[in-house]
Design a protein around this nucleic acid. Structure first.
Lengths: 331, 331
DNA sequence: CTGAAAGCGCTTACAG
DNA sequence: CTGAAAGCGCTTACAG
């Protein structure tokens, strides 16, 4: 590596002081630098391929244009890599870079990672959670500009998916197709799970608005096998099902298997709507109509909130778009 | 935020010079600082909760303990988020942090991101690719310590999955179960695709060692529908299939559908082995025996290579472990 | 319109 | 055993 060009190199070549060179390069036209000097500095910088040493600049300005992204986990569904991608893209558009770390839910590791980022003088934090939930902000983040990502805490800026509206949307897809009776929900709804609670509330509200209600909620884990067993059991009990609202695509996948094994066709006999819009939703046949988590948009929105509205404790609820595929038909 | 404690604050409280405080905190026992001074500095630092300003330190030492992770894409299969996770974990274990960015395959954006990281004085780079492939190192990275991740270039350190051995392993799973005839491969093998080429080479070699060979290669895209159609067409043409080696789990998923529709059972009538070990492999029934991409291990290995063997152009081929499930049986 | 000087918070020869 | 001083590469009052 050849040594980096410094500001003093540019200044010397342009025949001005570092002060003047700095003013020109910073674009501070309030300093009334002469046309000639401006031109010479610009030319010198270009010829030498000058790039400012941001470490030095940051030491002086106290600004690093770097954001810390701290999350319990990064790679896993449903709080997926697309969130990271969205955050990175929004940051880069605003000339920032992201320092990323995973806490694995370990408070000690979390503390250390936040300190490590603070030592590197990050300008602010994105604090993320895999599942949407209420969190308490770590002490280490106290007093530092932070936006919660897929998490909520009193008095703090946050970005979450609008699960309530998503629940309504899922139910409305069925209502629009003409379904009123025999609508079951597949997947347990633990009180502690924000997404589940809100989805169910939205579903219930939309059905109530239409003067009807859920036939039943099949309590099972959010995975193919449990869902398959739950649906099979319901069918075996003689219940009629005309439509299933599955808590996620994996549960929908299992439900699909149960229906097939029972000789029921989707969507001719039973319609299915689910949540997440994971890859699975498009691989399965028929494709699943699914309400998507706006991962990328959430990452973007969090960065935008952090950078554009530094003082406000706004909670942004992002729309969860419905992806229509072939799993819904008239009853 | 209360102002950060500086080294000079610690020194004053301990009654020593910043020099002495720095030596103590840096653990430079070659400087023979007195027991008493050492104790006082340590106590003062602890009481004040001192943490060094890494920006200032970096400006002086030219070391940031920060690594730049540049990849064409980060969130997508098969070069998955687990790679990022592994890299982050290995970095944190070594007291480093990761600056992460995505180039989206755009050379201009790539150039800019690398420069942005260089401006922040990163100590080195991980340069990643979504698909394993030969790359040419961007000019901007010239002369900077770099490890390729899921990519190869002459004379450079790199971490890639051992696809050749993986191909052998897939074939051996079938051979061990007693398969010799009627083994087909599902999925096209473009010359440009390193993974495909090597997998096929490994399969071919293992079968040849056992004195047999692939019945055919079904050329189709690596997705459920194309694979389903290709397998259906083969069956319709009257070919007999006893085992399928599918280029990835999505192709295996499609193959499974085609077999089911043809009334063939897996694994009783036809065995299936595939690659990737994605979530799909465990959701499907029977579960797919699949050769896994060691994402997390690759991320870890790349960081370790970068930090522990800075001068060597080692190419690490990481083992792809076979995950055995229910899709293979004796013919 | 321009430059000399101070200072951001550290580390590290150097001198004693 | 310890400290005064220089310096990493910038930015920015301040003076002229």
């Amino acid at each position: 590596v050849t040594d980096r060009v410094r500001l003093s190199d540019v200044a010397r070549r342009a025949g001005v002081s570092p002060t003047t060179a700095s003013f020109v390069l910073a674009g501070r036209d309030d300093m009334r630098i002469s046309e000639a000097a401006t031109r010479r500095v610009r030319a010198a910088a270009a010829e030498l391929g000058y790039r400012p040493n941001r470490t030095a600049r940051s030491l002086r300005t106290q600004i690093t244009e770097t954001i810390g992204f701290v999350s319990d986990t990064i790679a896993t569904e449903p709080f997926a890599g697309a969130t990271v991608r969205g955050a990175i893209a929004a940051a880069v558009e605003r000339n920032h870079l992201l320092l990323i770390a995973e806490t694995e839910g370990d408070p000690e590791l979390e503390r250390r990672l936040i300190d490590d980022m603070l030592d590197r003088q990050v300008d602010g934090f994105l604090y993320g959670s895999m599942f949407t939930r209420e969190v308490t902000l770590p002490d280490a983040l106290d007093g530092h500009r932070t936006v919660l990502l897929n998490a909520l805490a009193p008095g703090l800026a946050a970005v979450i998916p609008d699960e309530l509206a998503a629940g309504r949307a899922a139910a409305e897809v069925l209502l629009e197709a003409g379904h009123r009776d025999g609508v079951h929900m597949v997947g347990e709804v633990p009180e502690a799970l924000f997404a589940a609670r809100e989805r169910l509330a939205g579903i219930t509200a939309a059905l109530a608005d239409a003067g009807t209600a859920l036939e039943s909620v099949l309590e099972c884990e959010w995975a193919p096998l449990p869902a398959c067993e739950a649906v099979a059991a319901m069918l075996a009990a003689g219940e009629t099902a005309k439509a299933l609202i599955c808590i996620n695509d994996r549960a929908a996948f299992g439900s699909l298997q149960a229906l097939q094994e029972a000789g029921l066709r989707v969507p001719a006999d039973v319609s299915i709507v689910s949540f997440d819009d994971s890859d699975l939703a498009q691989w399965v046949r028929p494709g699943l109509t699914s309400v998507a988590l706006p991962h990328e948009a959430m990452g973007r929105a969090a960065v935008e909130l952090l950078l554009d509205a530094p003082e406000q404790a706004i909670v942004k609820r992002l729309e969860m778009p419905v992806r229509r595929r072939g799993s819904v038909a008239a009853p």
